[in-house]
Design a protein around this nucleic acid. Structure first.
Lengths: 141, 141
DNA sequence: GACTTATTGCAAGTCGTTTGCAATAATATC
DNA sequence: GATATTATTGCAAACGACTTGCAATAAGTC
């Protein structure tokens, strides 16, 4: 059977606490802001301080069980980690939909045909190491 | 001859002020943070209040003469508007390079072959209107 | 059940960005 | 060119997301 986030916490020597369990329970496949996570926790009658939510999310990200997204609106969003994917975000209502591309090079072709979304714009940036830095880091683990 | 940003300001009834001219002079083809813009202005002996820089940039964006980018590091970046493009950002030194793709669907193929960049990750998100909102806005200008 | 120490909550701090308001300067008018 | 009008600026304060120091709390250990 597969390893749960809680198993991962334990196996790495981190404590399985109430707040951490509650946050993991509230996280889903779609990205949530900390405000939304906090709201959901309140709703389920388990208030958790926002600073603690940030700290837990940071840990989960380092452990690889949570993924962080930035849609450029000044708020980071978090979801349970899954395979590489992107999102369709409605500028009007905030509705968010996952996009999984079998083959990323057919990207725009695929989207144009398969989605019911009217895509107005996309944010695409690449991160890595430039030629120079790449050589400096040669052999560095 | 082509219309300069200053002409555009004037033709739209906005004033061509010292700060606006200075900011436009300092902006280039590569994205700068407000901190960097402010620094450059100081260097060229024309201090301009950051609040004013933000206000000018806002206006320029609304006019379409400046483009805003967000690399997800908590700071927006600004450059003179030009045709649609993306960026290669070095995680190590912050070096930034433009990427213009003739045909965006060959995206990753192209990048793999043509750049000297070791791309570690990319941020790609789509924005627009979902099916529902798209229908609500039908016929709305 | 008591002990040790990681984790939490709280309050204060940071950083990028925005806003209210009085002072200033760009354009229009004489 | 001087003067009037009002958009724009600078300053200070406010804002919102996120971080941090520290004492209180609770998870895992003996």
């Amino acid at each position: 059977m597969t390893k749960t986030p809680q198993d991962t916490l334990q196996s790495l020597g981190y404590r399985v606490t109430g707040p951490r369990k509650a946050i993991l329970k509230v996280l889903g496949p779609l990205p949530l802001s900390v405000r939304e996570i906090s709201q959901k926790l309140d709703d389920s009658a388990s208030y958790i301080n926002e600073a603690s939510i940030y700290r837990s999310l940071g840990l989960f990200i380092r452990m690889g069980v949570v993924q962080e997204f930035d849609f450029g609106d000044g708020t980071k969003r978090y979801e349970k980690a899954s395979d590489h994917h992107h999102h369709l975000i409605c500028d009007n209502c905030g509705y968010i939909e996952d996009v999984r591309l079998k083959d990323e090079k057919d990207l725009f072709q695929y989207l144009g045909k398969k989605t019911m979304f009217r895509i107005n714009r996309h944010a695409l940036e690449f991160f890595g190491l430039c030629n120079q830095c790449s050589q400096l880091n040669e052999g560095v683990k």
